[in-house]
Design a protein around this nucleic acid. Structure first.
Length: 889
RNA sequence: GGGCGCUUGGCUCAGUGGCUAGAGCACUUGCUUCACACGCAAGGGGUCGGUGGUUCGAGUCCACCAGCGCCCACCA
């Protein structure tokens, strides 16, 4: 008994069921298997604090398409999932929630706080994973990893120790980026620069020996003058040469500071003389090293002024700025204040203005690592898609600075270094040491800092596969094939993975990097929580269905271009899911519960014209879809299927075969049509499966339920094989094009002359060539049916009946005699318009052909093509002119 | 300051130097036709930001310009 489908596709009814079905069948699971080609993607691990947004959705859907497609192709496919502990972000979130319960991190202590974070993680950390599943992600969930789980933590330690042993990790006192709110160091990449409208304060520093004279320095941060230890000028600067070596007195503070010469000073900026604040500015720190100056720290970690700030101690940095400027103004020390636009660093996690701070930190020496990565990239071992990102990535590697990896937070991988309290030796070890390697003392204390989250992320492609153990997984799945991500983390993540992969395993972690576009709102702005301009992907899946969301996004995904998204875009996908659903419904209804023989059992001779045509087009669609997927052209791949299914299969094939189904000339012909229907449906469902897994699975299973016994579903119960393109028949495709054109021209006449859709026409088609007459006669049934023509007269050089509408199709003429009233003016207008149109084409063609250079230099086939176009166009025009003349009689 | 991307019909976007520049949405007209009004059929609408160049031929390559956007930079 045939299952009757509802007239509308209802995604909600089927989605959950199919997902758990796939999981139960272990459809997503992969085991190492050296006999098969593997295809691996590691997911960009979302933060455990994350909530799914459109960016994740797009990223995930793209990976799922690639994975499902390659799986269907027969690869041993692994999509490795997991989450990232996201050090600072998570610590911030948990701290906030604890504060609501009156709990402060500092009061709780490290151990209790970390317990609370783990608890939070167990409770909320898998939210995003559930959301990824909702989208249909076919990850191997049995292998899910977390950057802080045991195995990955071991990998982090191993990597750290190896780098330390090679001298690629060092510790020291430097100026780093400090977030006063998160109270931790950040790497250069974790600082977002924004342009601010600020001021440039010009402050006069008097000479000690001649207090009525002074040097003027310009600064954007007057409060840091409390920590000034010198004034520097360029050694080449004639204006100041004579002052080098003199002593100035720092206003308000009263400290005596020297005038020094340093090439780092830009003569052209400000006054050409600059205050030197080593503890609070990276350049000044460098200058101080060259000149042996002792830094004066005037600010604490929370951006309040320190005791060395004298009377300003305890004030917030901006409060201090205001008070100090007021004081300077009062004393007459301000020469002038100018408006000044400059860029200000902000913490990428909390937006607080970054403070350069002098402190002890751990660093990775990047140059040697970068060089290896650059080399591997030049050798083509890693390619970017689109290719332009290669340059962005290489530029970063070439100018890379050392990476500050220590963070003064608690949530993360604590640095595997133990400080000996007796001899100050730093013991770096894979396992917790009990005695100092230098003095054998047992007074060891682990470094309190944790590692930058991106340190563990950099190991992700192999730590998730069991490294540093020598696992079967590593042998089978590493290097992975494709990395799919967004341009925002090329430096943070992609480049560092390449470096670490090469350093730890000696090979790149992936061969291709696909960088997809960013999802923007309707106005082209980034979607953000604070602006409230986001579109919630889960809300969209509720309203339109997962497959509709997937297909809509993929139809918008051109190679790497940003996507301006609005809710209405999802209608495109939903409409298509419904179209597919209804075509299936139609097919099932017309199979009447009977099982057609597989197409392979049907003789070619039994196939009719339209059968051969649709099969030829199917083969084209299969080939094109596959080729476009290879190139990461998701929109073109899906558009191919969309076009084929909707505008060829539904619009033409389903329509033309209706009589064969409803009033068949014989049962065999009906059975053949049914076989073709099922064949095309099955193959399109396969092609569509990576894009719309739920819909296609539902249809597949419905077919199976109905035809359990017939061998139509050769792969069993899950869509599991990718179709292979077979031969096309171009002659048939060409004939079809002609027939379609004739049908369209007849429909056009009908509409233009206001003939009701159902009223049958009489039509005459005149051809000059005998072969054309023959061909058309063969297909007269097709024409009659599709254009609703009752009497069709096809013949050699037939003449136009007196009162009739006409059209020229290729070398043919189509006439529709109209016994009743025919509006001559409408018909004349129609013909005139067409003549004008063709005339302009003809003009272009003639222009080309009259160009001697074109005829001589252009490819022969191009010239030949233009020649035949000229002939055809002029013939068409003259026929149309004749028609027009007749009308005027 | 440097780099990159974008500018094609009303809107959102495709478009591998040469098929009459396409699609979805919107629009117009006609259809409650027994798969689908989340539909069917027929249409209207752009000369591809500007200028110059390369070429037999440019939306497609090059240069410059303009507007929009993104990224990078030790702009005291």
């Amino acid at each position: 008994m045939t299952k009757v489908l509802a007239p509308k596709y209802n995604p909600k009814e089927v989605e959950d069921g199919h997902y758990s079905f796939w999981e139960e069948r272990k459809y997503f699971h992969s085991e190492p298997d050296s006999s098969r080609k593997s295809f691996t993607i590691v997911i960009p691990p979302p933060n455990i604090t994350g909530v799914l947004h459109m960016g994740h959705a797009l990223n995930t859907i793209i990976q799922d398409v690639l994975i499902r497609w390659r799986r269907m192709e027969g690869n041993n496919t692994l999509w490795m999932p997991g989450t990232d502990h996201a050090g600072i972000a998570t610590q911030n979130v948990v701290e906030k929630s604890l504060i609501q319960n009156g709990l402060k991190r500092e009061e709780m202590g490290r151990k209790r706080f970390l317990d609370a974070v783990w608890q939070w993680r167990d409770e909320y950390g898998s939210t995003i994973i559930k959301q990824l599943k909702k989208l249909g992600s076919s990850c191997d969930w049995e292998r899910e990893r977390f950057t802080m789980d045991e195995g990955l933590s071991a990998a982090v330690r191993e990597a750290f120790v190896r780098l330390w042993e090679k001298g690629l990790i060092y510790r020291g006192k430097y100026i780093i980026n400090w977030c006063p709110r998160c109270q931790t160091a950040l790497s250069d990449d974790e600082v977002d620069h924004e342009t601010h409208d600020g001021h440039l304060w010009y402050i006069k520093y008097p000479f000690r020996d001649e207090p009525h004279l002074s040097m003027t320095v310009a600064t954007t941060r007057p409060e840091t003058m409390l920590g000034d230890v010198a004034v520097a000028v360029n050694p080449e600067d004639e204006r100041y040469k004579e002052f080098v070596g003199e002593t100035l007195v720092l206003p308000v503070v009263g400290r005596e500071i020297p005038v020094i010469a340093d090439a780092m000073v830009d003569k052209a900026f400000g006054t050409g003389s600059v205050k030197v604040t080593p503890a609070h500015d990276p350049n000044d720190f460098e200058i101080s090293l060259n000149h042996g100056l002792e830094p004066v720290v005037v600010m604490e970690g929370d951006a309040t002024m320190s005791k060395d700030a004298g009377e300003y101690a305890g004030m917030d940095r901006y409060e201090c700025r205001e008070a100090l400027v007021e004081e300077l103004r009062h004393r007459g020390s301000i020469a002038k204040i100018e408006p000044h636009t400059h860029s200000v660093g902000h913490c990428y996690r909390c937006r607080t203005v970054i403070e350069p701070r002098l402190s002890d930190q751990w660093f990775v020496k990047m140059k040697p690592l970068a060089e290896t990565a650059i080399k591997a990239t030049h050798e083509g071992l890693v390619t970017f898609h689109p290719a332009r990102w290669t340059k962005v990535y290489l530029d970063w590697l070439e100018n890379v600075r050392d990476w500050c990896i220590s963070r003064q937070i608690w949530w993360g991988h604590q640095i595997p270094a133990w400080h000996c309290k007796d001899c100050e030796e730093v013991n770096v070890a894979r396992t917790t040491p009990t005695t100092c390697s230098k003095c054998q003392g047992a007074n060891l204390e682990q470094d309190p800092d944790v590692l930058d989250t991106w340190f563990s992320s950099a190991l992700w492609p192999f730590s998730t596969l069991g490294w540093p153990e020598d696992t079967e997984e590593l042998k089978n799945y590493y290097p992975t094939n494709v990395l799919v991500t967004d341009r925002g983390i090329i430096y943070f993540w992609v480049a560092r993975m390449v470096m670490m992969g090469l350093e730890m395993l000696g090979s790149v972690p992936f061969h291709k990097v696909y960088i997809h576009g960013t999802i923007l709102d309707e106005l082209g702005r980034k979607m953000s929580k604070s602006m409230g301009n986001g579109i919630d992907p889960l809300d969209m899946t509720e309203r339109y269905g997962v497959d509709a969301v997937r297909m809509s996004l993929l139809l918008l995904t051109t190679e790497g271009q940003d996507i301006k998204l609005s809710e209405s875009k999802f209608e495109m996908g939903r409409n298509f899911t419904n179209k597919v659903w209804n075509a299936t419904r139609f097919i099932l209804m017309n199979l009447e519960g009977q099982t057609p023989p597989p197409l392979s059992a049907t003789k070619d001779a039994a196939l009719s014209f339209e059968d051969k045509w649709i099969l030829s087009r199917l083969n084209l669609a299969i080939g094109t879809t596959t080729a476009e997927l290879e190139r990461f052209r998701f929109n073109d791949a899906l558009r191919t299927i969309y076009e084929f299914f909707w505008h060829e299969f539904c619009d033409w094939y389903l329509e033309i075969i209706k009589p064969r189904l409803y009033e068949p000339v014989n049962e065999e012909d009906k059975a053949v049509a049914r076989s073709v229907l099922v064949h095309v449906l099955q193959h399109t469902m396969k092609l569509l499966h990576p894009f719309a897994p739920f819909l296609t699975e539902e249809i597949w299973q419905t077919l199976r339920e109905n035809f359990r016994e017939n061998g139509l579903l050769e792969e069993g119960v899950i869509i599991a094989s990718w179709p292979v393109a077979e031969r096309r028949d171009r002659d048939i495709e060409k004939t079809m094009e002609l027939l379609q054109e004739i049908v369209r021209s007849l429909r056009n006449i009908r509409r233009n002359l206001d003939i009701p859709d159902k009223q049958p026409l009489s039509a005459i088609i005149s051809a000059h060539a005998k072969t054309a007459v023959q061909l058309l006669e063969q297909h007269s049934g097709f024409l009659k049916q599709m254009a609703i023509v009752e009497d069709l007269d096809i013949g050699h050089d037939l003449s136009k009946p007196r009162s009739s509408a006409s059209a020229v199709v290729g070398s043919l003429q189509v006439f529709v005699p109209l016994s009743g009233v025919i509006d001559i003016d409408v018909e004349k207008q129609r013909q005139q318009k067409r003549i004008t149109e063709l005339d302009s084409y003809l003009e272009k063609v003639r222009k080309k052909l009259s160009n001697k250079n074109f005829v001589e230099k252009a490819r022969a086939d191009v010239v030949e093509n233009e020649r035949s176009r000229e002939t055809e166009l002029s013939e068409q025009i003259s026929k149309l002119r004749q028609i027009l003349t007749d009308l005027e009689k």
